[in-house]
Computed example of a mutant assay.
Amino acid sequence: MKTVIFIPARYASTRYPGKPLVDIRQKDGSAKSLIRMSWEAACAIEGVDAVYVATDDARIAEHARSFGAAVVMTSSTCENGTARCADALAQLDGRPDLVVNFQGDAPLTPPWFVEELIAAMQADPTAMMATPVLRCDRQTYDNFVEDRQNGRVGGTTAVFDAKQNALYFSKEVLPYIAPGKLPTPIPVFHHVGVYAYRPDALKAYVEAPISTLETLEGLEQLRFLSAGMPVRCVEVDARGRLFWELNNPEDVARIEAALEAQ
């Protein structure tokens, strides 16, 4: 199955302008940009035929080419990463069987998260799209709660049914757990912002209307749910690693600490 990865990257982030070019301190004391770290993480995934940075910004494109990344220039009208992947796909010669949207702000994504996502799509030809979910450990759950208590929009949580199809995604911590009543294991799942789509799913996405829930939550995947298109949730195991995305400036320290601990 021919699989390509697109890393959507835009400069004009509402919460963190210029985020793809932010430098992250590495364990050896050097620094790498967020987009370079994400590209290197994507290149470590097995079973992928090509990796592209998809952007509409010349600064990001120039920087990405400087460290050897292939770049697809996309329209500035792409409203989110999924739409940018659809735009980039239309520019490729040849049609892949599977498109992976690897977020440019999640360099801590282990390769096996995406490998297991691809394997799940291979195992079920009826699945049109899928995304990983990760059961929260105590540190990740506390990060979620801390962000919400301080008025920050951080990571995303997912709830799904017995068939692993998504019921909802939210930037709130779902399900609600009363203080002092946190059970073990923690029944909160961190949505890992990676998606695998069949090309037809991307086509259906850009043809579907923008939904109210998508606009309110700022979560592109809710358009699929609003349009009645199933989203398969694939549970993955962090294997002791801390996973977190760079959503806010405060997350730089969290990611640097995670790199130091690896």
Rank of each mutant, 00 (worst) to 15 (best):
E116K: 08
Y168F: 13
P185D: 13
A208F: 02
L134N: 05
I186F: 02
A106R: 03
A119Y: 04
L98N: 07
I177C: 12
N143T: 12
V173F: 14
F102L: 01
F144N: 04
V99P: 04
P107H: 09
T184G: 03
H191F: 00
R138M: 11
R138P: 01
L117P: 03
M128P: 01
V133Y: 07
A120C: 09
N143V: 05
L202Q: 10
L174S: 08
N165F: 15
L117R: 05
R152V: 14
Y205F: 04
L202H: 01
T157M: 03
Y168L: 11
T131H: 01
K203D: 15
D137E: 11
H191N: 04
A162P: 01
D124W: 09
A119L: 01
H191G: 02
L98V: 11
A123T: 06
Y141R: 02
V145S: 05
V206G: 11
P111T: 03
T156L: 11
L108V: 05
L108Y: 09
Q122W: 05
R148Y: 10
V100M: 00
N143K: 10
Q164R: 14
A166S: 12
A130F: 05
P96A: 08
I186H: 00
V173C: 11
R152S: 03
F160E: 04
A119S: 12
G180Y: 11
P187L: 11
K171G: 03
A119I: 08
A120S: 13
F169D: 07
F144K: 03
V100A: 03
G180M: 11
E146V: 12
V99F: 06
D137L: 08
M129V: 09
